[in-house]
């Protein structure tokens, strides 16, 4: 358990009418950490994030952000930057006017020119927001979030709609912020981004936290896989291989290196060519799928 967490969520419950979106959810985010909150559609992560961001109050449980209630805007907001899932800008304002307005209201000091330079929108500074593309609006959103180098940054689907260069540039900036000690909470549907950048991951399903840990800890719970095909008439492969269809075989293993070597040794000894050989470590996607299809996990009510 963290001693002085930046975010402390304790037995959170969020209800809309009779619909329980989140129940009994607890997690903590430590200073300087990038915590990815992931989940299936309707898992409750948006509801959770809205409570943590202070846009909604908890039905039950408690949430502390930077030691204060998240709804205490004067205490929390000057120290937090928020990139919302949807942009929410005034279409008639220019890009520079938007950054100055939101930046000034954030209570932090910075220059619009600097943050627009960070996201590659300097040349669009005098363009009205209504004339921006979807990707440019996301970059503007990111610019307002990082204005004044906040201690805590919420990134809600930050790269949706961004091309690969913009995506790389955004992550480069995020990594710089992390190096400066910024704490980051990320939600995304791009699991490879979470796998690559997150220190810890929380996986939500059915309104509760189903798994939590580092990527290594989460992937360790599921086997890696080896796939290959055998030519007609080939000898039977090692006993841990399971036949699939059309002469294909699979090995699910927690000892990838050992079993792969054993397979290659067998192929060499048997003079067998392994067609389409692939060996893949367990990825976050596999953990995500396992959580999403686990019959023991309750569906949202």
């Amino acid at each position: 358990m963290a001693t002085n967490p930046v975010i402390d969520v304790d037995r959170l419950g969020a209800t809309y009418g009779t619909f329980q979106a989140v129940q009994d959810l607890s997690f903590q985010v430590e200073r300087g950490e990038l915590y990815a909150l992931l989940g299936t559609n309707g898992a409750g992560k948006t509801s959770t994030l809205e409570v943590v961001e202070g846009h909604r109050t908890a039905t039950t449980g408690s949430v502390r952000v930077l030691g204060a209630a998240p709804t205490d805007r004067r205490a929390v907001r000057p120290r937090t930057g928020t990139m919302l899932q949807e942009s929410g800008f005034a279409p008639e304002l220019t890009v520079a006017e938007t950054v100055r307005l939101i930046g000034r209201l954030s209570g932090r000091e910075d220059s619009a020119e600097r943050v627009l330079g960070l996201v590659g929108l300097t040349r669009k500074a005098e363009t009205r927001v209504a004339q921006l593309s979807g990707g440019e609006k996301r970059r503007l959103d990111f610019a307002t979030a990082v204005y004044g180098r906040p201690e805590l940054l919420f990134l809600d689907e930050p790269t949706t709609g961004l091309d690969i260069r913009s995506r790389d540039a955004l992550w480069e900036t995020v990594e710089q912020l992390r190096a400066d000690g910024t704490t980051i909470v990320l939600t995304t549907h791009y699991l490879e981004e979470a796998q690559q950048h997150a220190d810890r991951v929380g996986l939500m399903h059915g309104g509760t936290l189903q798994r939590e840990g580092t990527v290594a800890e989460l992937t360790r719970s599921l086997p890696a896989s080896i796939r290959f095909s055998l030519p007609p008439g080939a000898a039977t492969p090692p006993r841990q291989a399971v036949p699939l269809e059309d002469r294909s075989w699979a090995i699910e293993t927690f000892e990838l290196q050992r079993d792969l070597k054993q397979l290659l040794d067998w192929a060499a000894a048997s003079k067998v060519e392994l067609d389409g050989l692939s060996a893949a470590p367990t990825r976050l996607d596999d953990v995500f799928r396992a959580v999403g299809t686990d019959p023991a996990v309750p569906a949202p009510r």
Partner: peptide, 17 residues
């Protein structure tokens, strides 16, 4: 209009009351 475009939510994500 400001609510529909989520501009109100945007303003509420700042320190303004």
């Amino acid at each position: 209009g400001r609510r529909q475009s989520l501009f109100l939510k945007r303003l509420r994500s700042t320190a303004a009351g």
